[in-house]
């Protein structure tokens, strides 16, 4: 598995897209710092971008890489290697190289800017951690979708739909259900609704760390007492882990049952 991971990682690291992705983040972070001159504001703006873009790029990259490395997988399938190793290896290759682009692209400008002396370092680390989680989650989901669809166009379409659902439509439904059930106590519902969507969960984690929680009023207090405690943080990180784990498990199962 590690050999596969190594090859797909280096394959990707040398590809143009990794650089584009890396440079995009580099430029974004540098511009934000340059224009804003305020570390914590830059972190907030960056959050808005990361929450939406990281999943999108993870999805597109995952699907693209899967279909493009069809030959590579077929070559590997005839070799004495476990199927699960092949796909987990490929998946980790994509996820790790995307995470690298993200970490370096955003990390370098911030480090140069003097992040280590700033109080924002924890918010920033949390931002990067959730960014990495989202990369793994959405690459995993993208791999699942591509494994289940031989047809490239279909696979691509489903993957984009899935992203659209989790990034936008889910929140719409969430909002409607909150408004619809407004006569009932909603703390639990909003907590659960947040937990079920990795994008919402990441957004909430970062927002609460940035102490916008005060804006959230009573609900914020409920959220703060949940997410603010170590237990809450552990639960949310575990949920994110599950979001990584489930696609990976399904990937192994699906790949073991698939004909190539």
């Amino acid at each position: 598995m590690f050999k596969i991971l190594k090859y797909s990682f280096f394959d990707l690291v040398r590809s143009r897209w990794s650089y584009v992705y890396f440079l995009f983040y580099l430029l974004l972070a540098a511009t934000l710092l340059f224009l804003n001159n305020d570390l914590s504001k830059a972190v907030i703006t960056l959050m808005n971008v990361i929450i939406i873009l990281v999943p999108l790029i993870g999805t597109i990259f995952g699907v693209m890489y899967f279909y493009n490395s069809k030959e590579f997988t077929e070559l590997l399938l005839a070799q004495p290697i476990k199927r699960s190793s092949i796909f987990i290896g490929l998946y980790l290759g994509v996820a790790v190289s995307l995470s690298m682009s993200l970490l370096l692209g955003i990390g370098v400008p911030f480090l140069l800017y003097g992040l280590t002396q700033s109080a924002a370092i924890w918010d920033f680390s949390l931002l990067l951690i959730t960014g990495v989680f989202l990369t793994f989650i959405f690459t995993g989901i993208a791999f699942n979708i591509s494994l289940s669809n031989e047809n490239k166009i279909k696979g691509f379409g489903y993957a984009i739909m899935m992203w659209l659902f989790l990034a936008v439509i889910y929140d719409g439904l969430f909002l409607m259900s909150l408004v619809f059930f407004e006569d009932y106590p909603l703390d639990k519902l909003s907590l659960i609704g947040t937990m079920l969507n990795p994008i919402d969960l990441s957004r909430t984690l970062i927002l609460l760390k940035l102490d916008i929680s005060a804006l959230l009023g009573y609900t914020g207090a409920v959220f703060k007492t949940f997410f603010g405690t170590n237990q809450g943080l552990i639960i949310s990180i575990s949920v994110l882990f599950l979001w990584v784990l489930f696609p990976a498990i399904r990937m192994v199962r699906k790949s073991n049952k698939k004909d190539f």
């Binding site: 929450i51 439509i169 929140d171 719409g172 408004v179 609704g193 919402d200 909430t204 959230l216 609900t219």
Partner: peptide, 15 residues
Amino acid sequence: NRTPETIVLMRSLFI
């Protein structure tokens, strides 16, 4: 204002 709990969706793309 109408449903205070909806603030949990702040900074969501949908909003």
